[in-house]
């Protein structure tokens, strides 16, 4: 069997007495869109924070393409190809959209002198990456707009563009559609579907239409623990899941 993209073993994170993530062992296969569902406070964002390195786990291990990355800092994971977007918009508001993306593109520049006197080719490459990421998230017309002045939906798009500028192979998406209007939602879902073609994704999303449209596997979490993992059909059919979480939401 092919080596998985990402694998967690008995991953646990405590906040004081609360086990926000409790003994989670999951496998994320290459090229698959794997959604994580669960009610508010289930620990979904905390899982993403552990995978991205924003938070250290209390115990357990994380392997990325076979390598143990549990102790690696955020920036090293990004350069290995793990990109993330945030549930609560996390951009650089006083910069233009292009500069926001450029910051991500710069992470692909080698260290040292290249960061002080980059070659013309390197500068072109950074510029091209930033522009490509901006076009990808649908904001090319907003290149010179200060990010703070964007609409909420556009900020959410920029969030994805910034992540894409780092050229990740694994995307950690924490509620990319949060707070979006219907039209924006539809557009970004379409974008995610396109990205899914050549990226591995871990997707947290409350919008069931979007999840069922692009996810191939689904994990349901409740109270920090994994309730069930399976294909979309399995999860839709699961009585346990229906009872614990999906309820009427899952009915069309």
């Amino acid at each position: 069997m092919a080596e998985p993209m990402l694998e967690t073993r008995a991953l646990t994170r405590r906040f004081g007495g609360l086990r926000a993530v409790n003994n989670v062992s999951l496998t994320f296969e290459v090229g698959v869109v794997h959604a994580i569902l669960g009610p508010n406070g289930a620990g979904k964002t905390t899982v993403i924070n552990l995978l991205s390195g924003d938070l250290p786990p209390t115990s357990g291990t994380i392997r990325f393409r076979g390598r143990d990355i549990t102790a690696r800092p955020v920036q090293r994971r990004v350069r290995m190809g793990i990109g993330r977007s945030y549930q609560k918009t996390n951009i650089l508001p006083e910069l233009t959209c292009l500069d926001n993306c450029r910051l991500g593109a710069l992470s692909r520049l080698p260290g040292g002198l290249a960061r002080i006197r980059p070659s013309r080719a390197a500068r072109r490459q950074v510029q091209a990456r930033a522009e490509h990421a901006l076009a990808l998230c649908g904001l090319e017309a907003r290149a010179d707009t200060i990010a703070a002045t964007l609409s909420h939906g556009e900020k959410r798009q920029l969030e994805i563009g910034m992540m894409m500028a780092t050229e990740p192979t694994l995307l950690l998406l924490d509620e990319p559609l949060a707070g979006m209007g219907q039209e924006e939602s539809r557009r970004v879902t379409e974008l995610l579907r396109r990205l899914a073609a050549d990226h591995t994704m871990i997707l947290i999303e409350h919008d069931m239409d979007a999840v069922f449209a692009i996810a191939e596997r689904i994990t349901v979490m409740v109270n920090g623990a994994v309730l069930e993992t399976g294909s979309v059909e399995q999860i839709r059919a699961s009585a346990t899941v229906r009872e614990a979480y999906l309820g009427e939401e899952a009915e069309p």
Binding site: Q75, L95, L103
Partner: peptide, 22 residues
């Protein structure tokens, strides 16, 4: 230079700048 652009990111939003690989 790129160095200065990254430093600007560090000033504005260190958490996000780190999450962009710096």
């Amino acid at each position: 230079a790129p160095f200065g652009q990254i430093v600007r990111g560090v000033r504005i939003n260190p958490g996000r700048t780190q999450a962009l690989g710096h």
